[in-house]
């Protein structure tokens, strides 16, 4: 579980190019301009490549995936 958590934090930091994402896991990533539409899609592709979890672009509302903790929850419930 911790492994998944740190891998997802690394993915978000890598895609956004912003270390802030790792500091507060409940921060709204879209409000804070850390993620945008393009980064969100990169994240979905990366999640599929790394964890084999496929999430369709319209499957989740933005407010279901707007913090690192929520992303971790969405991936772990699908693994």
């Amino acid at each position: 579980m911790n492994d998944l958590k740190s891998q997802i934090i690394d993915l978000v930091v890598d895609i956004s190019g912003d270390d802030d994402a790792a500091e507060d896991l409940d921060m709204d990533l879209f409000e804070e301009d850390i993620l945008d539409s393009m980064a969100a899609i990169e994240l979905l592709v990366a999640i599929k490549d790394n964890f084999g979890v496929s999430i369709a672009p319209t499957e989740l509302e933005r407010d279901q995936m707007n913090t690192v903790n929520k992303i971790i929850a969405r991936v772990s419930e699908r693994i």
């Binding site: 393009m38 969100a40 899609i41 990169e42």
Partner: peptide, 20 residues
């Protein structure tokens, strides 16, 4: 949702372009 994201998803997973 249906053009930009699908296109980007396809392009990224098939590595059509050098950079994101």
């Amino acid at each position: 949702d249906f053009v930009f994201m699908r296109f980007s998803q396809f392009a990224l997973s098939h590595k059509l372009f050098k950079s994101r």
